[in-house]
Design a protein around this nucleic acid. Sequence first.
DNA 1: TATTGTTATACTCTATAACTATA
DNA 2: TATAGTTATAGAGTATAACAATA
Lengths: 144, 144
Amino acid sequence: MPPPARTPIGLVLARTARTASRAFDEALVAAGGSLPVWLILLTLQTRQLGNQRELAEAVGIRGATLTHHLNAMEAGGLVTRRRDAANRRIQHVELTPAGEALFRQLAGAALAFDQRLRAGLDDRDLDVLEGILGRLHANIADGQ
Amino acid sequence: MPPPARTPIGLVLARTARTASRAFDEALVAAGGSLPVWLILLTLQTRQLGNQRELAEAVGIRGATLTHHLNAMEAGGLVTRRRDAANRRIQHVELTPAGEALFRQLAGAALAFDQRLRAGLDDRDLDVLEGILGRLHANIADGQ
DNA sequence: TATTGTTATACTCTATAACTATA
DNA sequence: TATAGTTATAGAGTATAACAATA
């Protein structure tokens, strides 16, 4: 007899994530941003990174993809790029005041979204969820 | 004093989902498919749907987007479309033997992925995860 | 030669709007 | 007029490959 079938957890995760990420995208767009822009701003504000390669890796995209976004963000006055004096191959990316303002704006939207998302869940639930998601993450990363 | 900051659960979910969905995409592509093709095949095999509109909704995409995928799938010999005799506006979508074969192929890949994904988690963990994800889903859907 | 980043190009998925055919 | 689906077009995000500049 086959083991009792249960809905593949990957499917449940995919469905939830799809619904959540679409709603989150919409919230970010409504706040004047987008998911990649938010991730880039967040990474720039919370980590001290030496170059674009590290930034791309932290965000989870390729270098060329990051360039693509940074071009748009620079054109939009959100960031500046400055060559490192000692190693002119390296670009230092910095937020402009407008970039910081958008960061705060998007942070507010992200926070509001999160409060909505975790309605009815207490800290213990969230700890459990985080633990299991961490495990899932590790299970995938292992194979890499 | 501000409440103790915890990583927004949406961010944790987004990161896990991104990593998981990329890995899942790769697994499906390696097995000769893609995520939308898999979702369409899965929906066709597991539900009895009357028309393409319902299929699109079940998959979570727009009608025009579904047409786009079905065109490619029909060209690839995976599905056939047949007009309803009684209401010729309606298309009935059916899997060909090749479509069924790809379904089995992708189902195998999805199953293998799922086993890898849930390594180290027992049924109780998965129940808890499913429950919390269901709650998250409901929290978003509420706002729609 | 190796590293950092950019440019050029293209692919996938998705969407909206306008359209055809049918009811 | 309303409904089912298609066509045309476009946009966002991502990627690879080839390249320039620097070390």
